[in-house]
Amino acid sequence: MDKLELRRKVAQARRAIPAEARRSAAAAIRENLLDRPWVQMAGLVACYWSTGDEPDTHGLVFALWKHGATVILPVLREDDDLDWAVYDGPDTLAPGRRGLMEPIDTRRGVEAIRTAALVIAPALAVDRQTGVRLGRGGGSYDRALARVGPNVPTVALLHEGELIDGVPAEPHDRPVRYAALPSGIVAIR
């Protein structure tokens, strides 16, 4: 299956998940992550503000922030690379490019992700063997993940059934080390 076909298949499955199931899945993912010492000890966390059918990150971002982590969220640049800015509570977000919610704080530059102790990335699917993630096709997160050190935990948030075999990979694709699902955290590599 090619990337475009797999994206369509996952998007269709995500649309079929009832709202209540999405809410309980988001809560389970959040609790699974917050139970991990490497999440609890991360002083600077790069995350994202979820949209649509993605596993919801709003509660996770808020919980990380309330527990004392500095959370940086992406700001989509004109070249589709990701800049980063600090989340300082729910009132510090505003619509950005493509309607994505972004922090209104000072931009820290594309290299800011290098200093994160934990990186949480979106994905439509992740290959259970290699950690290659299927994104939306713009390459923004592949560029960002290329800047992350090899020992930094990188986590993709997924709905059940999205950790699969055979995600198509290209040379620019960057893998993640963990998949966070409602049923638990899966170490990949």
Rank of each mutant, 00 (worst) to 15 (best):
I17R: 14
I17T: 15
A19Y: 13
A19T: 15
E20W: 03
E20K: 12
R23C: 09
R23K: 14
S24C: 14
A27C: 05
I29L: 09
E31M: 05
N32T: 05
N32Y: 12
L33H: 03
L34D: 10
L34K: 10
D35W: 04
D35L: 14
R36E: 11
R36P: 08
W38I: 01
W38C: 01
V39R: 13
V39N: 06
V39K: 12
V39P: 04
Q40M: 12
M41K: 10
A42L: 03
G43Y: 01
Y48N: 08
Y48S: 10
W49I: 08
S50I: 15
S50N: 13
T51K: 10
G52N: 11
D53Q: 15
D56N: 13
D56E: 13
V61C: 02
F62A: 15
A63S: 14
A63P: 05
A63G: 09
L64Y: 05
L64D: 06
L64R: 05
K66H: 03
K66N: 08
H67E: 15
A69K: 09
A69Q: 14
T70Q: 13
T70H: 09
T70I: 12
V71E: 04
I72H: 10
I72M: 14
I72P: 02
V75S: 08
L76N: 05
L76V: 13
L76T: 12
R77S: 08
E78Q: 08
D79A: 07
D80F: 07
D80T: 05
D83S: 12
D83F: 03
W84S: 06
A85V: 09
V86I: 14
Y87R: 08
D88F: 01
G89E: 06
P90F: 15
D91L: 14
T92L: 11
A94I: 07
P95M: 06
G96T: 06
G96N: 11
R97H: 07
R97T: 07
R98V: 10
E102W: 04
P103V: 04
P103M: 01
I104W: 03
I104T: 11
D105C: 13
T106A: 12
R108N: 04
V110I: 14
E111D: 14
A112Q: 09
R114K: 14
T115A: 13
T115D: 13
I120M: 11
P122S: 07
A125C: 08
A125P: 04
A125M: 07
D127W: 00
R128Y: 06
T130N: 07
T130V: 07
G131Y: 05
R133C: 05
R133M: 03
L134N: 04
G135Q: 02
G135A: 02
R136I: 02
G137K: 03
G138M: 02
G138E: 00
G139N: 04
S140F: 01
D142R: 02
D142G: 02
R143N: 00
L145C: 02
L145Q: 00
A146F: 00
A146G: 01
R147K: 10
R147Y: 00
R147L: 11
R147I: 00
R147E: 00
G149K: 00
G149V: 00
P150D: 09
V152T: 04
V155Y: 01
A156Y: 00
E160M: 11
G161S: 07
